[in-house]
Simulated scan of single mutants.
Amino acid sequence: MGEEVHLGLPGPWAEDYREKADHYTTKIGGVPDWPKEDLGIEPELLQCGLCGTRLCLVAQVYAPLAKLNIEERTLYVLVCPTPKCSHNPQSWKVLRVQKCLSGMQTNGKEDVLLQRKERVCSNEPAPSSSVGEHKEESNSLNRNDDDFDLDALAEALEQAATLASSTKKKNKSKRANNVPTKCAVVKEKVNDLTIPVLPCFYIYYDKEQSRGKSNVCSSSKETVLEEDILDMGNDEEEKWEGEKYEYDSAPGADRTFLKFKKRLDAYPQQCFRYSFAGKPLLAATNLRDVGTCKLCGSPRQYELQLMSPLSYFLHQAGDGSSSCAPNAWSWLTLVVYSCSKSCCPSSCGAKPGNCCWGVVEEEIVMQEDEACNA
């Protein structure tokens, strides 16, 4: 069975780019939603390593890990808003913020991306984030079915069915429009104007098709191709000759880039890809060593990567209401590597009876579009 890859797709635009949410919210741009006001973040972690300018948020991804029994965990991807710096990898940072609990143990469950409190819009039900979440809830019901009021359970299931139907219709509308839509409700906003902000929109999830399957989205006429083109020979209905890459007819082509482009074209709205301990979708083969965790010495592993459509959607919102813009970005993908053990980034060391928040900087690798830099 292949790895699960969760795709971050554009949901509605924020009414105000400085509006507050919480650390459970997955979004692009806006202001960082820290889990608490005083996290004790060192000032240099929020400053550009080249010019010292205050960094702005590019992506905030709520990323709990069921396998490690860590639910309070969020990744923040930041960049210098200055055009002269933002094309340089040293101006990008990734912070892992998580709550350190005592007695953390592996429970043997598959790593999944849970979105229990995904915020899209207060007047719109949040879309389902992953299959894993429903599995967790189902298991919980099975373990505690003796404690449930059956009438209450029936009522809850009826409400869930209504919510799912409503969410499906709204998600279909989002896909058809192919761009984020404006959220109608104004939320509380951050009044600190010293924090630079990119245009803000929220994210909903879809799971990338597994190898050997294809999917056609009738609303946007997007075709999801099989990962291995040779497997398409037995099914005439899945042959899309215009989309196939003929490696034999292009002997000078870069296979790594062609594979990258094929999977990007399959979901042209993907703003990021998530698969903890999975394999990154690389645009080039030259990848530097990402080293080990600064805190515990464990090897780093792939977790997340930003994709170039993210820049497109941010450009679409260039109405002057944000204090920075992605004008100097020329990268194809930004790949984030994190501690394979997701170690406790705090001085409490997960001692019995202690519970605190910690912050640690992880590693990010930039792969650029060489044609733009030529």
Rank of each mutant, 00 (worst) to 15 (best):
272 F>L: 13
308 S>I: 06
301 Q>M: 12
269 Q>Y: 03
295 L>P: 00
328 A>H: 03
346 S>F: 10
269 Q>V: 03
337 Y>K: 07
279 K>Q: 14
346 S>I: 10
274 Y>V: 07
323 S>W: 03
275 S>I: 10
324 C>I: 02
288 R>P: 07
345 P>I: 04
271 C>R: 00
344 C>K: 02
268 P>C: 13
281 L>A: 00
283 A>L: 03
308 S>M: 09
296 C>P: 02
282 L>W: 09
292 T>V: 14
287 L>Y: 15
339 C>W: 01
289 D>N: 13
284 A>F: 06
316 Q>F: 06
321 S>W: 08
335 V>S: 05
333 T>S: 11
307 M>L: 13
300 R>K: 15
275 S>Q: 08
291 G>A: 14
290 V>L: 08
308 S>W: 02
273 R>C: 04
312 Y>V: 14
346 S>T: 13
302 Y>K: 00
347 S>C: 10
321 S>A: 12
290 V>F: 06
331 W>I: 08
343 C>Q: 01
313 F>V: 09
284 A>V: 11
280 P>H: 01
327 N>H: 09
263 R>D: 03
290 V>W: 02
311 S>V: 14
262 K>N: 07
321 S>D: 13
276 F>C: 05
342 S>V: 11
311 S>L: 12
306 L>A: 09
276 F>A: 03
308 S>K: 07
280 P>V: 01
319 D>Q: 04
325 A>M: 09
268 P>K: 13
265 D>C: 05
294 K>M: 11
326 P>N: 09
269 Q>C: 05
262 K>G: 02
322 S>I: 11
327 N>G: 05
274 Y>M: 05
335 V>Q: 01
262 K>D: 08
326 P>C: 08
333 T>Y: 05
306 L>Q: 06
294 K>F: 11
297 G>P: 08
262 K>C: 06
294 K>Q: 11
271 C>P: 00
282 L>F: 12
347 S>Q: 10
286 N>Q: 14
304 L>Q: 04
264 L>P: 02
344 C>G: 09
270 Q>I: 07
293 C>F: 07
346 S>W: 08
291 G>Q: 14
280 P>C: 04
316 Q>R: 13
347 S>K: 08
281 L>V: 03
328 A>S: 10
307 M>E: 02
312 Y>A: 12
266 A>K: 00
285 T>N: 15
335 V>T: 10
301 Q>R: 10
340 S>G: 08
307 M>Q: 03
332 L>P: 00
308 S>Y: 05
343 C>D: 01
348 C>D: 15
317 A>N: 05
337 Y>Q: 06
263 R>W: 03
297 G>H: 14
330 S>K: 13
286 N>W: 10
321 S>M: 12
272 F>H: 07
275 S>D: 08
271 C>E: 01
279 K>R: 14
270 Q>R: 10
346 S>V: 12
271 C>S: 06
344 C>V: 12
318 G>N: 10
